[in-house]
């Protein structure tokens, strides 16, 4: 019989022993549990901030769009042609194409000169000097350069204006936040693995006699490690579930407060619901919990198996 078969056959025994160990070593189980919950919670908060920042940037920049001005002599046919040409760049890149007539352009100008709109009085109807334009919204801002270039080569396009700088800054901020989240994530994993493996090391140390006895009676390393690994997994799972629950409650509470703020409402920007975040968080937490359980217990047992 190989060690692998040993482990497979004994998995029921391991699960039973693992649960028993968790309950028996309440103190160290609790320390591991709290450590993991703290680490996961901090990550959860960082992740939620990162995702919301990205989402806000996307919403803001989607509202920007690229403005494409047509030459003043463009005929109705040419105007329609341009719209279908823009759509032909690809629906994977173009999200929306909005037509702005001469009249609408004039109205917009008037609105922005609220108190002095009389200066546009002479430009009504025939005298309207504003060109027809399209506002093109993209599915993803990274297509900006490419789409601008394509539109620039089309007929009857006078000039293109995009709020490039604003968008670039926003993208940079979003990237920065994302990077910070990744750094926090890595630091937390290192921290959690270190603390958990130390906690397990204490448990293992206090049970070294038991371990050596197991070895003398003929237990393989895998057989001895089994219950400890299961113990780690159980703690990891409980930590993951508790953290998701706590994070969900805290998130919904805080978001409901922030969402009432004037700035966000005026800009018509929505924040993500916990439901939208929970899938990724759940997967990360479960993998993290189980992974740290396995890695932590394997690292810390090594020394005591040399009998």
């Amino acid at each position: 019989m190989t060690e692998k078969e040993d482990i497979a056959v004994n998995s029921f025994y391991f699960v039973g022993e693992g649960f028993r160990n968790v309950l028996k070593n309440k103190k160290s189980s609790l320390i591991s549990l709290i450590t993991m919950i703290c680490a996961m919670f901090i990550f959860g908060v960082a992740f939620a901030i990162g995702e919301n920042a990205t989402s806000v940037v996307e919403q803001v920049s989607a509202s920007q769009g690229i403005q494409v001005y047509m030459t003043t002599d463009a005929t109705d046919e040419q105007i329609n042609q341009l719209e279908s040409d823009i759509w032909n760049i690809g629906t994977d890149k173009i999200q929306k194409v909005e037509f702005v007539s001469k009249q609408q352009a004039l109205e917009t100008m008037k609105t922005s000169f609220e108190d002095a709109d009389w200066i546009f009085d002479g430009y009504e109807g025939e005298n309207n000097i504003f060109p027809v334009s399209y506002i093109v919204s993209l599915t993803d801002l990274s297509y900006t350069g490419e789409v601008e270039k394509a539109i620039g080569q089309m007929d009857n396009v006078d000039k293109i204006r995009s709020s490039n700088e604003t968008i670039d800054t926003l993208i940079k901020i979003a990237h920065g936040v994302r990077l910070a989240v990744i750094v926090i994530f890595v630091l937390l994993i290192v921290m959690a693995v270190t603390i958990i493996s130390n906690t397990i090391k204490l448990t293992v140390h206090s049970r070294r006699r038991e371990i050596s006895i197991m070895k003398y009676v003929g237990a393989t390393d895998g057989f001895i490690r089994g219950p400890f690994v299961v113990e780690g997994i159980i703690i990891g799972l409980i930590a993951a579930l508790l953290t998701i629950l706590m994070l969900g409650l805290a998130y919904d509470f805080i978001i409901s407060k922030i969402a009432q703020s004037d700035v966000l409402q005026r800009m018509n920007i929505g924040l993500l619901s916990f439901g939208e975040l929970s899938q990724v968080i759940a997967i990360v937490f479960l993998v993290l919990g189980i992974g740290i359980g396995i890695v932590g217990s394997s690292i810390s047992m090594k020394k005591y198996l040399e009998v």
Binding site: M1, N10, E210, I213, M214, Y216, V217, G218, T220
Partner: peptide
């Protein structure tokens, strides 16, 4: 596993009952 050993200091698992101490040797050989 091919030999049964009675150690000078017995080497029993202190937090397992008499029954579990004996059963443990059988768990090991699946």
């Amino acid at each position: 596993r091919s030999m049964g050993v009675v150690f000078q200091d017995f080497r029993l698992l202190p937090d397992k009952t008499v029954y579990d101490n004996v059963a443990f040797a059988m768990h090991i050989v699946r």
